[in-house]
Design a protein around this nucleic acid. Structure first.
Lengths: 199, 199
DNA sequence: GTCTATATTGAGATAGAC
DNA sequence: GTCTATCTCAATATAGAC
């Protein structure tokens, strides 16, 4: 797509700077990252950043909005696929881990800054899309309980949170450049979740 | 203990302020919390904080050091108990959830600020004690694999991380004042981990 | 699209009176 | 143990030249 001549809202330079900002936000935290550090890493002066972005906040907003809209869309499509719940759950987990592989820094920011960001009206979309995701995943687990694929005494909401938390917080130790492919990790997680670790 | 006349390093007022700071660090993040906000919540002026503490950093250091030393000690004792691995693992998970129940704010700070803090030499103890914890827990899982209690094809380190992440990140939604007791949540988590959710 | 130069604000921290 | 008063620095952001 980037090779077409189509006029786009985000220039390549803008995307480049956004990626740099995401890395810094992920490593040091949003509040602890200064616009000067972002500018330094991009090889420009801090004032020049404001040619591309209104503010530091608007950078993180753009990162999270794009990411959350994309992944929520993917969840929606998969949840509506009508496949059996075990398979759908496996695919949802894979989608999540693939998103970590593709956009590690942005996911880290979302995970690490979630509580801070949702306290600002500007970031209400974060909570809205997270809640839609919860409904989609819990729906799949409930379908699995009804179909008999999952245990009848399962608490779908707590099970979802257990899995969600374990997935997202793995950004803390997951190395996108390492030898573990996202889909392999996803399968380990789903394996543990489905059958447990007991003999 | 607080009713004795024994002279202690930490005055009650100091502990009170520390608890207030922990709540704010947990809710808004360490970097985003100002000393003025801490002072306001404590009903004093910002300058007065420095009668009790050297700096904002020393507040979070004291919170984390006390917490990590306490819980690591508890893990050590349990890991050395010689009970069967399933029981030890269950107790370790309960200890973790009980610590969330008892010191929710401090645990939140540790989870949320982990990556930021370990980048400063001053907080190297955080990483040291975390690594000791990992060795203890992984050791228990390995013992379980050898004894046949856990599956032979298990990756002990990845299993530990899966469980650790799921536990700690639950501070994001766990309400210490809610109706779920820490040990009940711990048992749900261990139940899922041991036997999975599949029928 | 970037630079120079700077405005403006708010942060952490300090000294000494009470 | 807290307050008054203030220092100092670093942060975000702006305006206009190039």
């Amino acid at each position: 797509m980037s090779t077409t001549g189509v006029v786009r809202a985000g220039s390549e330079r803008r995307e480049e700077i956004l990626a740099i900002a995401a890395e810094l936000f992920a490593e040091r935290g949003f509040a602890a990252t200064t616009v000067r550090e972002i500018a330094d890493s991009a090889g420009i002066l801090s004032g020049s950043l404001y040619h591309h972005f209104d503010s530091k906040e608007s950078m993180v907003e753009e990162l999270l909005r794009t990411f959350l809209e994309d992944i929520t869309h993917a969840y929606r499509v998969e949840a509506a696929s009508g496949d059996d719940p075990v398979q759908v759950l496996r695919t949802l987990v894979r989608l999540a881990f693939e998103s970590i592989g593709a956009r590690w820094a942005t996911v880290s920011v979302m995970v690490n800054e979630y509580n801070l960001l949702i306290s600002y009206p500007r970031f209400s979309f974060v909570q809205d899309l997270s809640e839609e995701t919860e409904r989609l995943w819990v729906g799949v687990i409930e379908r699995g309980v009804r179909s008999g694929a999952f245990r009848g005494n399962l608490d779908p909401r707590m099970t979802y949170r257990f899995l969600r938390d374990a997935i997202w917080v793995s950004v803390r130790w997951y190395q996108p450049t390492g030898r573990d492919r996202p889909e392999d990790i996803a399968d380990v997680y789903v394996g543990v979740l489905l059958d447990g670790i007991a003999n």
